[in-house]
Design a protein around this nucleic acid. Structure first.
Lengths: 233, 233
DNA sequence: ACCTGAACACCGTTCAAGT
DNA sequence: ACCTGAACACCGTTCAAGT
């Protein structure tokens, strides 16, 4: 008897048995390259060379798949370090989390929407938050101040604006793009700011704005403020 | 000749002519009550008693519809006040924006994802950001410090955690809910924090955590820090 | 010229039929 | 018992046919 079925689209190893890990890894890889909107159960199955329904043996449904993907990427955040002060420990941990979020651009949106939908975050997320609180506690912060600190670290005071000066290559073209002179007239303050920023560092192409520097500026302003509150007894 | 077609699902006024405003208002109302995932062109059309394709006369496609919805809700933010110091002006504006985001729970997610997709934010969003920068400038902040300030206000230092202790009614039930004693063993710091918070204010039901207070705490910590940097010349 | 029904190419998930 | 193809109830958008 001869095998007459040709498998056209087995991008992965043809006969490696499916597992939850393989499903999640394929989903993360697809989301990394195509964004989460382009992620579908059918496409994951195709990438694994498998019929769509085969996925449902390893993940209950698409939401549960998204939860699993969150666990994968949050697990990539560096574990807490011993033998350092609270400030550098928090700092390194947060910067490690930021690198993860930059690697997986879909992650922050998925985490946010899934956190809103679930009663309890996934265990991996809980673990991350718990150890973060532990670092503050070991640094001599009262439990009430740690509570406030966690809110401060997670809050976004404007609902938006962060993406304003980011690299805009690969974005949708603006349907009615405004000429620069009209920009300057209608939004004088944004224009002033944009010009000051691009003048500061000519070297930077694209956004003309050092996002890493800005992130650390916000982080240090916050950590210094929290330290001051702690020391005010 | 007799009208024999009965219109089953005309929830709105039957013959009021369609307009972009009516389409956007219907979309915002549907998203307010059912979330943005449940929003579809077909459902908006049904709510207006109109055939789906009729919407495409007033909005180019679904993304452009979402942009229009953003303009509607950002337009609800209170305009800047004259005759106040920069700090109270910023404070009131941000708190007004927060109330808008609480009214339209879908808005922050849609704003974030559309800002990432577009080259330029919509004019209404630009207007909001421009006037915000203007308030800082009038308060004597250097352009560089205003630049940092805008980043600080928009940044979220943890990718998440904000929703951790929020009201969890109406969320998906956890598939494998953990017994409290195991919670306490695995996440000692989270447990300590949760107990301190619920003990602090017994009056609050549900989350046991005053989100409004926490938001203002973060806001004031940030504004005080920025003021200190400004005065350090 | 305008309006709109049918159709296309998707989607997550159910379910019954096949092994 | 397990696996899976077909089917169901959606979705955004195209397009041609009708007025």
């Amino acid at each position: 008897m001869v095998e007459i079925v040709t498998r056209a689209d087995a991008a992965a190893q043809p006969r490696l048995p499916l597992s939850r890990e393989r499903v999640l890894a394929a989903a993360v890889a697809l989301a990394d390259e195509g964004g989460v909107d382009a992620l579908s159960m059918r496409k994951i199955a195709q990438a694994l060379g498998v019929v769509p329904m085969a996925l449902y043996k390893h993940v209950a449904n698409k939401n549960e798949l998204l939860d699993g993907m969150i666990d994968v990427v949050v697990g990539e955040i560096a574990p807490p370090e011993a033998n350092t002060g609270w400030k550098t420990a928090i700092r390194r941990r947060v910067l490690s989390a930021r690198r993860m979020l930059l690697r997986h651009s879909w992650a922050s949106g998925v985490i946010e929407s899934r956190m809103k939908a679930r009663v309890t975050p996934t265990p991996v997320v809980m673990e991350y938050l718990d150890s973060m609180i532990g670092i503050f506690r070991a640094g001599g912060f009262s439990i009430d101040l740690v509570h406030h600190a966690m809110h401060v670290m997670g809050s976004r005071l404007l609902g938006f604006s962060q993406e304003l000066f980011e690299d805009s290559s690969g974005r949708e073209p603006d349907p009615d793009a405004m000429p620069p002179e009209e920009m300057a007239a209608r939004y004088p303050h944004i224009t002033e700011l944009a010009m000051a920023v691009t003048h500061d560092n000519e070297s930077v192409v694209g956004s003309g704005c050092d996002d890493q520097f800005e992130f650390e500026f916000a982080l240090d302003l916050t950590l210094d403020g929290l330290e001051r509150l702690r020391d005010a007894t």
